[in-house]
């Protein structure tokens, strides 16, 4: 399997009046061709900053890449100039944003927003781009695209706007699609439509997808692999089933156990994770989850654990995985299928 994207030890920080906020602190993951990788975590864990850094959308100043590489098809995007990035954005890597209400341009017709990229990147004539735009709108399931293409975003409903966003993102057949919370702003019945559409389109054009989300339900539906982030670090990665059926990190357990489930007769109490995430202005020296972790040991507060391999596809950064650590079982409700 060929790697489309290889992020190596990425550090991203922001300079603020209070000091340097270390939003991303050493993130490593890769994406192979045609697969969907989900990055999950709570607000402020650095998942969106990671994805925006891949697209180099972080404004500098205040944000900057402190260390690390973003290797896309053999080239390090972290070293690219703004001019070089313009050729990549929208062409090789495209992005779908969370809020379709605010991320479309209200002063341009939907058609123009689709053809913009085609004319810029693919050297199409206006006429060709127009035809391609109609084809894209039809592909994402917008009825009567010939008339819809002349309309403005405010004439579209929320679900239709997200479809239009997907049409814009996929128009140039990107090799990598980054979807940042693509369904969070949508209602469940519309969310189901959009997830189905994304799966369907992925089969058709064989794009790799990075899906950023906090909803483990969506992850279970669409992802092949999962990257769990906490306080700017990757704490666990693995195949979908490994994360849901053999989770190793107490934070992953906490996430799974704090979600209620529709298909279960639950008189069992939800197990919340106590406390809240650390402030990244001054992150703790050890494991960032130690302060909220029920199994924290002395070493956890002093030293960040190494990433160890559970299997060739499953890695975890936790001291509990150390051979000298006590044997701890995940809480009831954390492991699926039991």
């Amino acid at each position: 399997m060929t790697k489309v994207l290889d992020v190596k030890d990425l550090h991203v920080s922001f300079n603020t009046f209070n000091g340097e906020v270390q939003a991303v602190r050493g993130v490593t993951f890769d994406v192979t061709k045609g697969e969907t990788v989900a990055i999950v975590g709570e607000s402020g864990c650095g998942k969106s900053v990671t994805s925006q850094t891949i697209m180099r959308l972080i404004p500098n100043p205040p944000g900057f890449i402190k260390e690390g590489q973003i290797v896309f098809e053999g080239q390090d995007l972290a070293q690219y100039s703004e001019k070089q990035m313009e050729k990549v954005r929208g062409n090789d890597i495209a992005m779908i944003f969370q809020d379709p209400m605010t991320s479309l341009n209200p002063t341009m017709t939907v058609g123009r927003q689709i053809t913009e990229g085609l004319i810029q990147h693919q050297n199409m004539s206006k006429q060709e781009a127009h035809e391609k735009a109609i084809e894209m709108l039809r592909l994402v399931g917008i009825p009567s695209p010939e008339s819809r293409i002349k309309q403005y975003p405010h004439q579209f409903s929320g679900g239709m706007r997200q479809r239009a966003m997907i049409a814009i993102a996929l128009a140039c057949q990107p090799k990598l699609l980054i979807a940042d919370e693509p369904t969070t702003a949508l209602d469940v019945t519309i969310q189901a439509q959009i997830i189905d559409l994304m799966k369907d389109l992925q089969n058709k054009i064989d794009t790799s997808i990075i899906l950023i989300t906090h909803d483990l339900g969506v992850v279970a539906d669409i992802a092949d692999r999962v990257v769990v982030m906490y306080a700017g670090k990757v704490i666990e990665t693995g195949k979908l089933d490994e994360i849901f059926y053999q989770p190793k990190h107490p934070y992953t357990w906490g996430l799974l156990a704090s979600m209620p489930r529709l298909d279960q007769d639950d008189n069992t109490e939800l197990l919340p994770i106590p406390g809240s995430p650390p402030n990244l202005l001054n992150p703790p020296p050890g494991c960032p989850f130690a302060a909220r972790c029920p199994h924290a040991m002395k070493v956890c507060t002093e030293q960040m654990p190494e990433t160890t391999e559970v299997s060739t596809t499953h890695q975890v950064a936790c001291w509990l995985d150390h051979p000298l650590a006590p044997d701890v079982k995940p809480p009831a409700g954390a492991v699926r299928g039991e």
Partner: peptide
Amino acid sequence: AVPVPDPEVS
């Protein structure tokens, strides 16, 4: 339509 956080069920 509600996503269930369990791959097997999905």
